[in-house]
Nucleic acid binder design. Structure first.
Lengths: 330, 330
DNA sequence: TTGTATGCGTTATCAC
DNA sequence: GTGATAACGCATACAA
């Protein structure tokens, strides 16, 4: 492997000049630049960025921590992050933490060890104290899920308002007994969506019934099982609000197997607006988030923080949308 | 940020000794080690790995290039890669190439610039010449998809044999007119599966009919559309072999909408054995691959190559399995 | 415009 | 068992 020295020798200039050519410095005479470029080509020279990184103390690499890569919800967010990142000369790398704190810590060491310049968390098992501690020294952003009270910027939709709107929609359609398929995890979105559900009931003067909240794991099977439980009851709910489209779709299967009609016998609302939500029969009413924009904003925030332009942690909320389809209203 | 120098000063030893402690060298007296460890703790010292990387000329980072992160097929493969990688001290990073050659090249520069030690391709837009060229100088492995003739090791199932087995299964059930929903891409798996389909027909003495192969984009909608085309024909096929489960599931929807029974009126076989294939009615007959093992083997190969233990490119094929469910046989 | 010299933080070789 | 010191490849302040 040729080094910058070899190129300098071959071009008959100093390494400094080669470096200037590599970094597009203006103060290089055109014919010198040519000579260097020829030498670079001749030697098939590739700069060893380990040297540059050490010298500049940056790697131009950003890490995105995903709790899982099997969730298609993240696809567009990552696209947004990449778009803004690449445009600013950063490489985006993803890693799959599997919601495992130890795995997260392994990847966070890359940040502490200066191997990456910044990180974006899609979710984390770290406590708000741990986050604040790392966030004090290293650039990082929380995206979609976040820890309340951690001194780390975040961007998200308002999950409380989104859930409120979904439940309000069902109430306006005349539903009084609304089952919720919530989540077992401890993410803030889960907490806030449950709160939004309760508030919507309260504002409509409907008494809250603990038995109407079941918990699932966000997948098809969870939704199927939970709906079955609802269906077995004497006074079954007339509508279900699921915290993910996959659970909503699982619920729809259970309802249809029972021989009931959607939305007449039971209405269903999901969350996420995944592609599949338009492929089921009837199409699913759901909440959509501007994932691509969220990704762009997250990366923007991170860039600002790396430049030191962020004095205080920022808390940004973006708009969501209730998409009404045939699963609630014909 | 404290450096190794600061630690040395505080512990009253030389940087060499600190380095020895950091790298678990045996030749350090126990009390010296203690002193150093105390200093490290006091200063909250984190080694800056940019220095180590430059010195050792390695980063202990591996890149996995995915054509898309929205395909759940890759999840278990990545898990296998991570398992073996982490166990050997390597960090696994993923990147989403979006099947874009330019994006691939951006990430490949990381390899050329020594920022990562090796790469695993799940698919690539590079030509076999380009692959061979890079593979000559840098450690890389092809996984599942590969370029025939490229001098780069690969691991895959035998797609020809898998398709042959699937079609043979349909033939044994008495089907003579078997439609295939193939892919529009130029991956070798597509080519080989079509070849396996044709060979199975040929061996059974069934004449090949060009009109029985339609092309799709691997998703639900493609399968739905292709099946609709088949259904509109006077002599429609009695079975469909789709090159992905998502297309097979799309096809099933079209068949059911037409009021036909699966498998009686039309049998369906998929490919991939995704989770969803057991959630549809009837459950889908499909080909399963040992994804986790494939990932482990890919990483093993890469490790060997990085150690210089691979003289020749290796071509490894692992077993696949035809999983027979209700979509072909009651 | 170009060259010289220094240092980024670490590891590893060689003395002692 | 430990310390001094020379690399690793590059960017940049300063001098020319």
């Amino acid at each position: 492997m040729a080094t910058i020295q070899d190129v300098a020798k071959r071009a008959g200039v100093s390494v400094a000049t080669v470096s200037r050519v590599l970094n597009h410095s203006l103060s290089v005479r055109e014919d010198t630049r040519k000579k260097v470029q020829v030498a670079i080509k001749d030697l098939n020279y590739q700069p060893n960025l380990l040297g540059r990184n050490l010298r500049r103390s940056e790697t131009k690499m950003i890490l995105v921590l995903l709790p899982t890569i099997s969730n298609t919800f993240y696809v567009k967010i990552v696209k947004g992050i990449e778009e803004v990142g690449l445009r600013n000369g950063y490489n985006i790398m993803l890693c799959d933490t599997d919601s495992d704190k130890q795995r997260e810590e392994v990847y966070l060491d890359l940040l502490k060890n200066k191997l990456i310049d910044g990180a974006i968390f899609m979710a984390t098992e770290l406590s708000k104290e741990e986050l604040s501690e790392i966030g004090r020294y290293f650039p990082m952003i929380q995206c979609c899920e976040y820890k309340e009270g951690a001194e780390v910027s975040y961007i998200s939709i308002d999950n409380f308002a989104a859930a409120y709107k979904a439940v309000q929609h069902l109430i306006e359609l005349g539903h009084q007994r609304i089952g919720m398929i919530s989540g077992t995890n401890h993410c803030i979105s889960t907490f806030q969506r449950e709160a939004g559900y309760k508030k919507a009931l309260e504002d409509a003067g409907i008494a809250f019934d603990d038995a109407l909240i079941l918990k699932g794991e966000y997948g098809f099977k969870s939704g199927f099982r939970a709906a079955k439980q609802f269906l077995h009851r004497d006074k079954r709910p007339t509508a279900i609000f699921a915290m993910s489209d996959m659970m909503a779709i699982g619920a729809m299967k259970a309802i249809k197997e029972r021989g009931l009609q959607i939305p007449d016998d039971m209405a269903v609302v999901g969350f996420d607006n995944i592609r599949f939500s338009t492929m089921v029969e009837p199409q699913l009413t759901t909440i959509s988030q501007p994932q691509y924009d969220i990704g762009c904003i997250a990366m923007d925030l991170l860039l600002k923080q790396m430049k030191g332009e962020l004095k205080e942690p920022q808390h940004i909320f973006v708009e969501h949308e209730l998409i009404i389809r045939k699963s609630t209203f014909k």
